[in-house]
């Protein structure tokens, strides 16, 4: 099958700096215009039948891309299986919900608090859990995801099963207003966050943390022999992932104005993980593509709405058989390793 990843990388390698910058700017320009794609005849096929296209673009599409990029740092880059990623999304959302309705703080002020709390909970969970190996980590994180949801369900401060209502929208920033129907504005905020994450991960990849994560993913023991402090770098990976999940949660709560525990089920963790695996673990562009497709397609082809989950599962199954490493897998040399391991 056509190897888009290598082709793309080869073209990118050939370009000089101005060419790369131009390409990036053009790409950013077109993505920023995505909310209006539904209005042009040429791209109007993107319109979704039931929910508004613009709303779909914000949630789930952009939101899933953001979270999948965050989870990719943990699962794809560092090889730590986190099955409770929804917990950090929930912590961000409830931080926004509670502080937004009980204090005078606005979304932009709560955003760093939500990120901080998500990171902190990532550290508190990670400190004991990251000492465990593979399967245990998966189980512990899965449990954590459920615990956060159950706490939200039972606490008075979180509104129990009724959740939190009347969460304020963000105040205007740089002249851009945010109201419930201003989907494009939210899209741009999330798009900005996505770009920030891409930039950050690209930096990390070539620097110490990225190398440490790569080493840990390939062989933990050998990484330790190289002088990699396993716990410290795993904690970094885990809490950066958590921070991104938290940021997504804050924006989400502030947009939908209402949150309840049943929005933060294990299903969400699985869906985000599916985005990562489906797109190509460890390769950001693959993850972005995977998340976009998995989030968007079910909204677009709702005419099969009753059997949506079934069709969806079957498509995933077929694709994972044809391309077991995802749509756009990480660098090809990894494949050799997998073959040898068998």
């Amino acid at each position: 099958m056509l190897n888009i990843r290598d082709k793309g990388a080869a073209i990118w390698e050939k370009w000089n700096r101005p060419q790369r910058v131009t390409f990036a700017l053009v790409l950013i320009f077109f993505v920023a215009l995505l909310p209006y794609a539904g209005e042009f005849p040429l791209t109007s096929f993107l319109n979704t039948p039931i929910t508004s296209y613009q709303a779909t673009l914000v949630y789930p599409v952009a939101m899933f891309v953001l979270m999948a990029l965050g989870l990719n740092i943990v699962v794809g880059k560092s090889g730590l299986l986190d099955l409770g990623y929804v917990a950090f999304f929930a912590i961000g959302a409830y931080t926004m919900g509670i502080l937004g309705t009980t204090t005078g703080l606005n979304t932009w002020e709560i955003l760093p608090i939500g990120i901080g709390l998500a990171m902190l909970s990532g550290l508190i969970l990670g400190l004991p859990a990251l000492r465990l190996r593979g399967d245990y980590l998966a189980i512990v994180t899965l449990g954590f995801g459920e615990i956060v949801r159950i706490i939200a369900l039972n606490l008075k401060q979180t509104g129990g099963p009724n959740g939190v209502v009347g969460i304020p929208n963000p105040p205007a920033i740089f002249g851009q207003k945010f109201s419930l129907d201003d989907h494009a504005a939210y899209f741009w905020v999330i798009f900005l966050m996505i770009m920030l994450v891409i930039w950050m991960v690209r930096r990390f990849t070539v620097r110490r943390p990225g190398r440490a994560w790569e080493a840990i993913r390939q062989d933990e023991d050998v990484a330790a022999l190289m002088g990699v402090n396993l716990l410290v770098y795993k904690l970094w990976s885990f809490s950066i992932g958590a921070a991104i999940g938290g940021a997504a949660g804050v924006i989400y709560a502030s947009k939908v104005m209402f949150i309840a525990p049943d929005m933060f089920t294990f299903n969400v963790s699985v869906l985000i993980l599916a985005c990562v695996v489906f797109g190509g673990m460890g390769n950001m562009w693959g993850v972005i593509l995977g998340a976009s497709i998995l989030a968007y397609l079910p909204e677009r082809i709702r005419f099969i709405s009753n059997s949506r989950q079934l069709v969806f599962g079957m498509v995933l199954l077929v694709i994972m058989n044809v391309r077991p490493d995802g749509l756009l897998p990480r660098k090809k040399r990894e494949k050799i390793k997998q073959k040898e391991a068998k």
Binding site: E214, Q218, L225, E334
Partner: peptide, 8 residues
């Protein structure tokens, strides 16, 4: 050997 197989 214990090298990193996916690294150059």
């Amino acid at each position: 050997r214990g090298i990193f197989p996916g690294m150059t």
